[in-house]
Design a protein around this nucleic acid. Structure first.
Length: 449
RNA sequence: GUGGGUAUAGCUUAGUUGGUUAAAGCGCCAGUUUGUGGCACUGGAGACCGUCGGUUCGAAUCCGACUAUCCACCCCA
């Protein structure tokens, strides 16, 4: 296929048949976040490259080999954001949000870009839902951020997902730990896999989550960071767990969680699933108390998470969870002849102004073909307009599901049709509720409203 | 960046040991007389068989390279 008719490697189109799923997810997560007081922030797709090298860390894989970086025409080094935290932090500082009442809580839906080799659940352009909470040192904030993620999965009906948490301490206690860890791995140097051998110098903590069986086994006997936490960090971690328990959120402590972004401190967490192949982490984040200072602000403790939208969608599919259907067309106006076409256009306009979704034939097809089309687009009602109907002033409206027809006066068509439509929606809802009490009403409403 | 699988209509796939105009189902368009969809039937459009090169009288089929895509490593959401 010619290059110009081929999407860039690792990018994906969302087609009209599927976009309602994205829309549903997006509005759902934003809504849930807002219940917790997180308000949406929107930042640019690109930033100065230095923002990411400073925050994400210039020894990380993300910065070293995955960023889309280029010089613009003014000679600035620009980078397409590889994650959402840095841009939000930059905006927080730039607009002096530290002078607003604390905590500041923001949420976002962004596209992110990483030059990686694509595979299941891993794209070069992907989308993240994220939240950030600034100015809260307390472990209660950690638990609250985690609970937002928990709420999203709960609301969507996802099970077989577990929360793993860990603390990687503050720079002071982590240093001590890393020394001990390095000493341990040095002692078993000749057994490590080649990649871990490299990691030994760069970041020995990464060896902890290596998947190779030998390294995994060696890592099992390695010193555990939790034993090296300073009193403050240990206390903080204990409190986070306490809050999670109070909030009824189950978790597992996994001392081997190591995040690949340098800015994390203390609490780190991942929501992981085994229904997604190698890309197990659907949502991950943690605390980053040093980040705001690192990019030039004062000391502002903060934390947040990112959730992969594509992975979330994959997960929903893997677990057979149905999302609400796209909004149907309320009424399709079939028309015969030029005159009727004019009338149909006017009627459709009137119906839309009353808040209904209305369509009419714009192709010039036969009546039969128009009816077929109405069926294909899942129209709830159809009406046929011809010279006779216009002359008599009465249109027959057909319920496409039951086949029943109702006569409606063309004079006040929009109002009468709305009554009819609401009545049938109400009775459908009634049936649904009495049929099955467990049905999520909001899903149904999403389908018809 | 490393390894493995795959590549035939919009989609899912047939295509024998290389042998004329590459097949089917779904989908799309139209028709089965007069103004009412779903079912059925009929017809139609739609494929440079991923690309380039090689072997051969002859390649969708065999060989090579490239590209794309999928999966795993790595990394991460």
């Amino acid at each position: 296929m010619a290059l110009i008719t081929k999407a860039i490697k690792g990018t994906q189109d969302v087609l009209p048949a599927d976009s309602h799923k994205n829309q549903f997810i997006e509005s759902t997560v934003l809504e849930i976040a807002s219940e917790f007081g997180f308000k949406e922030i929107r930042t640019p797709v690109f930033e100065h490259t230095e923002l990411f090298t400073r925050s994400v860390g210039d020894t990380t894989d993300v910065v070293q080999k995955e960023m889309y970086t280029f010089d613009d025409k003014g000679g600035r080094s620009i980078t397409l954001r590889p994650e959402g935290t840095a841009g939000a932090a930059r905006a927080f500082l730039e607009h002096g949000l530290q002078n607003e009442p604390m905590p500041q809580k923001v949420s976002y839906l962004t596209s992110c870009y990483r030059y990686e080799k694509p595979q299941a659940g891993r794209l070069r352009e992907f989308h993240q839902f994220g939240i950030e909470c600034y100015g809260a040192e307390s472990p209660a904030a950690d638990a609250e951020v985690i609970s937002v993620g928990n709420e999203v999965f709960g609301f969507l009906g996802i099970d077989r997902i577990r929360l793993e948490i860990n603390s990687i301490g503050c720079p002071t206690c982590r240093k001590e730990y890393q020394t001990a860890l390095k000493a341990y791995f040095e002692s078993r140097k000749d057994e490590l896999c080649p990649t871990c051998l490299e990691r030994l110098d760069r970041n020995p903590m990464r060896i902890l989550d290596c998947k190779s069986p030998i390294c995994h086994e060696i890592a099992a006997g390695a010193p555990i960071i939790l034993d090296y936490l300073c009193d403050d960090c240990r206390e903080h971690f204990e409190e986070v767990k306490k809050y999670l328990e109070e909030m009824n959120i189950s978790y597992e402590v996994n001392p081997h969680i190591v995040r690949g972004l340098d800015y994390y401190t203390r609490t780190v967490f991942e929501f992981v699933t085994d229904s997604l192949g190698a890309q197990a982490a659907v949502c991950a984040g943690g605390r980053y108390d040093g980040l705001i200072e690192e990019i030039g602000g004062s000391h502002v403790p903060a934390l947040g998470f990112g959730m992969g939208i594509e992975r979330l969608l994959l997960l929903l599919e893997a677990q057979g969870i149905e999302l609400p259907e796209a909004k149907k067309c309320d009424i399709y106006i079939a028309n015969i002849g030029k005159n009727a076409s004019y009338k149909a256009a006017a009627l459709a306009t009137e119906l839309r102004q009353s808040g209904m979704s209305a369509q009419f034939d714009v192709v010039g097809r036969s009546l039969k073909a128009q009816m077929k089309y109405a069926d294909k687009i899942n129209a709830r009602y159809t009406t046929v307009l011809g010279d006779d109907d216009i002359a008599s002033g009465i249109a027959k409206v057909k319920n496409m599901e039951t086949g029943e027809t109702t006569e409606i006066n063309l004079e006040d068509f929009a109002d009468s049709f709305m009554d009819l439509s609401l009545q049938s929606a109400a009775s459908e809802l009634q049936n649904l509720v009495s049929d099955d009490k467990s049905v999520d009403i909001s899903k149904f409403l999403g389908g018809i409203m």
